[in-house]
Amino acid sequence: MTSAVDLDFRPEAPAFDANAALGRRHDRRVAVDDAAGLLAEMDRAGVERALVYAPHAAAFDSAEGNAGLLEAIGDESRLVPQFVCNPTFDDLEATAAQIEAAGVRAVRMVPMLHHYPFRSWVVGEWLEWLSVSGIPLWLPASYEANWHDGGDLDPHAVHETVRQFPDLHVVLCEVHYVQASWAPPLLRSLPNLSIEVSRYVIVDGIARLLEIVGPRRVLYGSRFPEQAIAPQLYHLHRLGLNEADLRAVCGGNLERLLGMSSDG
């Protein structure tokens, strides 16, 4: 029985973290806030690469945060930048140019923190551009800050809006068990929606997600530095997945969404 516990765990599949933050927060000091620290934790957990965004870009100013992110990453190829965009105030043309110049492959929006409804009359132009550009969009189901609770994402708005952009790939991230009531039916109804599972800890929940949407729409993520990198990876290795599905969930699906693999 106890042989199932692996105190010397190392991931068997190449791991690519789909949800990590890099940089200082204004509201509290996090345990790791620079690239060297993140890379050291990735090495300890056996994670090869991470998609990273700047918390400052989410909480305060997207342009300053995104610029700081690129500075923090430098020429470290294991860290893949994700820009935070605020479609209510950011200039689409200028942002698109910055994203192209920096080789950014993914965008994150935080409507509950940036105070806008996730509706096509607000975000439609941006989603059209993302669709045409082949850039996937991350949407956190919640966002926590100690001065302000951003509240939960409106699932109805996501459903009504994302269905209008069938060529856009959207990743629902930071889904807690209190959102397990609506996340599975949302995934079922939107074939272009995937889920990142850093907070999805409800019993047998990931196995049920895999049954609902299949192995190509479930992505490993850590939610670093709020959370440790290795635990959810260990969990995924205890689900009894075959090698191909494990590789897909641990990193292959993220590679594909970011256009970094030959598996279309």
């Binding site: 516990v5 800890v201 409800i202 019993v203 990931i206 440790a228 290795a230 990876l233 260990y234 969990h235």
Partner: peptide
Amino acid sequence: DMALMDARQQIAKVVTADIPRRAKEKIL
């Protein structure tokens, strides 16, 4: 916290922690 949370995920925070092996055995 089973059957709310998954034991495979919850045990991982001990298994993968940066602590001595003997400490893990005690905690587990």
